[in-house]
């Protein structure tokens, strides 16, 4: 029983190692990144795919900041639905 459990754990570790190794050698940049951004002049930065509700969430170059930002209220920094649940949160630092 202990042997089976150990074997299972080792198999899981090997699987995790294989995943991490595969991801480590995968291309960091998306396939057509250079072509796309050279074409459109660099567009997109944040987790939104369009400009509705929050232009800043699409590309901070295009707007001053997030209109939904309610900081410094705790948690108020990101009530915007266009900030990916804050997994990719950035604040305005670009001053006019």
């Amino acid at each position: 029983m202990a042997t089976r459990q150990t074997a299972f754990l080792i198999a899981l570790l090997l699987m995790a190692g294989a995943i991490l190794a595969t991801e480590a050698v995968a291309d960091r940049l998306p396939a057509q990144a250079e072509q796309f951004h050279r074409l459109v002049g660099g567009l997109g930065f944040g987790p939104a795919l369009d400009l509705s509700d929050c232009v800043f969430g699409f590309d901070p170059r295009l707007d001053d900041g997030c209109a939904y930002d309610r900081g410094p209220i705790p948690g108020g920094a990101c009530v915007c639905p266009r900030h990916a649940g804050s997994i990719f949160y950035y604040v305005k630092t670009l001053d006019p």
Partner: peptide
């Protein structure tokens, strides 16, 4: 969530680098 964040980071870097 973390994997998506790091994927987005790479995409955003490319946008900056090639813009």
């Amino acid at each position: 969530g973390m994997a998506l964040a790091q994927g987005l980071e790479a995409e955003a870097e490319a946008s900056v680098q090639f813009g």
